[in-house]
Amino acid sequence: MSSVYECPCCGYRYHQDLGDEHEGLAPGTSFSELPEDWVCPDCSVRYKEDFQPTN
């Protein structure tokens, strides 16, 4: 199970281990815990379901 998910539009990466401090997502917040209507915080073009697991 990947712990990194990438936006296919702009390359933003969500690291589950790191979270996203600016977005108020604590380290360890799993990708599945993000709200269903979550959009990429950098480009706002892609939704959560568009993100690709990556290494």
């Binding site: 539009c9 702009c10 950098d42 480009c43 706002s44 073009v45």
Partner: peptide, 13 residues
């Protein structure tokens, strides 16, 4: 290049 607006919305960054 703001007026190339379609590409801006496709790739905002």
């Amino acid at each position: 290049h703001l007026e190339r607006h379609s590409d801006h919305h496709a790739h905002p960054t």
